[in-house]
Design a protein around this nucleic acid. Structure first.
Length: 538
RNA sequence: GCGCUCUUAGCUCAGCUGGAUAGAGCAAUGCCCUUCUAAGGCAUCGGUCACACGUUCGAAUCGUGUAGGGCGUACCA
């Protein structure tokens, strides 16, 4: 809608027009400060320019009024335009807010180590990534969601050790000495038991076999992780194992060398990548003295493989504590001969939890971990998704677990769900059939109904903007304010029994469509009815 | 030390390609159910947009500096 208006205005005025929301709704549907930016160039006051532009609009299909106020231009859309657009949306619910787009995108996210179930911090990146994924799909992008499984390196060895220690202490009641770092958690129990069945007891007493144990166990952990994700409506298209990549390392290194003979060099018995020359703070070790490649080497091979697969754009979502890693991967991508501008790395910031005001320490290696599955079990996937999707992903977020547990009006997801349920209830209580409702036109509304219709039809812009800016919180924000408009309208107007019942119901159907579509993009299913039983504890 | 980032209402956060009176939710206070679900609505309270300087007709928004917080600065991931 905004697109159409802005294109129309551009033709009319011959300039690129920035459309914004008027300060006050009574001014109209859209506004632009164009006259201010023209003032200097035309050497006239913004007021005069705005007046001139406004009076140059004669009769127009699109607007009923174009007014100049204090240098701003305010536009009011015609009811024909809004009515036709709203009717079209109801007739084409799948096309509403969607687009044609052939760009191929590879989105890599979560990629948590397969050493334990996901914790609350992971779930933030997971929700953010999956929301972007849903937005992109809806906008017509050919997007692939990928999970990079770090099934190599020290942390995998640590997993084997941790299972063995768990089994020896808790199953065989041995006295064991714990090293500085090891994993702990209930999930080790089922892994330990499974390992006994698979390998027999001996494996726990043979340190040389811990690796074998770990390589078996990581598949079990991945099952836990994908289950945690699936419970929050998050699925992946592809999984790539780090361990499968290292065999290409020599080839990839040669590729970088061929592009730039200084890309890799040897110093102190190690191999380094000249990342400093490409904007990193320092050069980085890629192969240790003992010939083992570092984690970065694996990531270089992985990114090479990504680019070889030929996407138009690549998005990574990383925990913010890895942000220092961005320059070195970008450097490697450049040495590989690819355009590092196609690689976009987004950050998911820390989640710090409070419990009754006390800080909750989250560390994977410490025991005091809040599992994603625990939170989902307590508050539901919908509330979890909504809370993370509604906050900007790259700023730290702090909240109280007890607050999250509350399933009452302080939880905005209920507010939006309730708006949708209210609409469905009215429609089901009306004597009018859907056909009769659809025959009505969306015209002749008063100010409040007009605003509601207009707001409901803004969804496409919001979806597009949320994805393009990677600021997914714009969608929940929008839904919340649309729900507020609906609740207010509901309170002010008793719909059933009015003579214009049909068109008001049709208006509500447009609102319901926007809410339902918006929620589905957040991975949340709209409810047609909400049971009134509220938990009475607080 | 260096790099990145953040600082907006009591709390959690929007707003940031510079533009019309700085917003929302929660919390607090007071109203509104013979009305399609009160999981709702209305109202009040609450701000030197960390601070200083600069750019501009105009700055929460851009620049520089200061203070404070977070993260990074691994041959861990």
């Amino acid at each position: 809608m905004k697109q159409k208006v802005s294109t129309y205005l551009q033709d009319k005025i011959g300039r690129e027009i920035i459309l914004e929301k008027p300060r006050d709704r009574s001014f109209g549907h859209f506004a632009t400060p164009i006259a201010f930016s023209l003032a200097k160039e035309l050497r006239k006051s913004p007021m005069v320019i705005a007046d001139e532009i406004a009076s140059s609009f004669g009769d127009s299909e699109m607007f009923t009024s174009v007014e100049a106020v204090k240098g701003y231009l305010n536009f009011r859309l015609s009811e024909n335009f809004l009515s036709e657009y709203g009717t079209w949306a109801l007739d084409n619910p799948m096309e509403f807010a969607s687009q044609e787009n052939n760009q191929k995108i590879l989105l890599e996210y979560v990629s948590a180590n397969p050493t334990g179930p996901l914790h609350i911090g992971h779930s933030r990146g997971a929700v953010y990534g999956n929301t972007l994924y849903r937005l992109a799909k809806h906008l017509g992008y050919d997007i692939t969601a990928e999970y990079y499984v770090n099934d190599a390196g020290n942390q995998i060895d640590l997993l084997g050790l941790s299972i063995a220690l768990y089994a020896r202490e808790n199953i065989f009641n041995e006295d064991v000495e714990y090293p500085e770092s090891y994993y702990r958690g209930n999930y080790l129990q089922s892994l330990a038991k499974g390992a006994i069945e698979k390998f027999g007891r001996e494996i726990f007493n043979d340190e040389t076999r811990y690796k074998e144990l770990a390589l078996w166990a990581k598949d079990g952990v991945m099952k836990l992780i994908t289950k945690d994700l699936a419970d929050a409506n998050i699925t992946f298209d592809t999984f790539i194992n780090e361990s499968s990549l290292y065999s290409d390392w020599d080839k990839v290194m040669q590729k970088m060398q061929a592009n730039d003979k200084n890309a890799i060099y040897e110093k102190d018995g190690k191999l380094w990548i000249s990342s400093e020359a490409k904007g990193d703070d320092n050069d980085r070790v890629v192969v240790r003295e003992d010939k083992r490649p570092t984690y970065l080497a694996g990531d270089i091979v992985y990114h090479n493989q990504k680019f070889e697969r030929g996407y138009d754009h690549y998005i990574n979502i990383w925990g913010a504590d890895h942000h220092g890693y961005i320059p070195r991967v970008n450097a490697a991508v450049q040495y590989l001969g690819y355009d590092s501008n196609k690689l976009e790395t987004l950050l998911s910031q820390m989640v710090s939890l409070l419990k009754d005001g006390e800080p909750y320490k989250m560390s994977k290696r410490a025991g005091n971990v809040i599992l994603m599955s625990d939170i989902v079990a307590e508050i539901g996937a919908d509330a979890l998704r909504f809370i993370f999707a509604s906050k900007k992903s790259d700023t730290p977020l702090e909240f109280d677990v007890e607050q999250l547990k509350k399933q009452d009006s302080s939880n905005p997801i209920f507010y939006i769900q309730y708006a949708h349920a209210r609409i469905k209830t009215i429609i089901s209580k009306s004597d009018l059939s859907e056909d009769e409702i659809m025959k009505a036109t969306l015209k002749g509304f008063d100010e409040n109904a007009d605003i509601l219709l207009f707001d409901a039809l803004l969804l496409p812009e919001v979806v597009e903007d949320a994805f393009n800016s990677r600021q997914v919180q714009k969608l929940p924000d929008y839904l919340q304010s649309l729900a507020a408009s609906l609740h207010k309208f509901y309170y002010d107007v008793r719909i059933i029994g009015r003579e214009d019942e049909a068109k008001l119901l049709k208006l509500l159907m447009v609102v319901a469509l926007s809410i339902k579509t918006g929620l589905s993009l957040l991975g949340i299913e709209a409810k047609d009815y909400m049971s009134k039983e509220v938990s009475e504890d607080s």
